[in-house]
Simulated scan of single mutants.
Amino acid sequence: MSTDSQPAEHRYRRIVLCADDFGMNPAVNAGILSLAGRDRLSATSLLVDAPAAGRDLPALLASGLQLGLHLNLTESFGQPGLCLPLGRLIRMAWLGRLPEDAVRAAVRRQLALFMDITGRAPDYVDGHQHVHQLPRIRDALLDALPEPRDGQPWVRDVGRPRMAGLPPRLRFKAAVIAGLGAAGLRRRARARGHALNPGFLGVYDFQGGAPAYEGWLRRWLASCHDGDVLMCHPALGVDDADVLSAQRQAEHEVLAGALMTRLLAEHHLTISPLLSRP
Rank of each mutant, 00 (worst) to 15 (best):
F206L: 15
A212S: 15
D226S: 07
G127N: 11
S245H: 04
A36Y: 04
R55S: 15
D139N: 05
A19I: 14
A106S: 15
D239V: 00
S42V: 03
I32H: 01
L111Y: 10
I117G: 10
L170T: 10
T74G: 03
R190V: 08
L57N: 05
L134D: 02
V28R: 04
R11C: 14
E9G: 07
L89Y: 11
L57A: 05
P234G: 13
G119N: 10
A183N: 06
V176R: 07
Q129S: 11
A178W: 03
F114E: 08
A8E: 15
A144H: 03
R14K: 11
R109F: 02
L263D: 06
E266V: 02
G202E: 10
V254C: 12
A140E: 07
M24Q: 14
L98S: 09
M260V: 11
L98P: 09
F206G: 08
L61G: 06
I90M: 11
I137K: 00
H70N: 04
R55V: 12
A30D: 05
I15Y: 04
A52E: 03
R192T: 00
A250V: 13
F172Y: 04
F22T: 01
G127R: 00
P168C: 03
A144D: 05
L95E: 12
L67D: 00
A43D: 01
P80T: 10
Y124V: 02
S45L: 06
H268N: 11
E266K: 13
R91L: 15
P198Q: 04
L60P: 04
L236Y: 02
A174H: 04
V229Q: 11
H233I: 11
S223G: 15
G159A: 06
D239C: 14
G202T: 11
A144S: 14
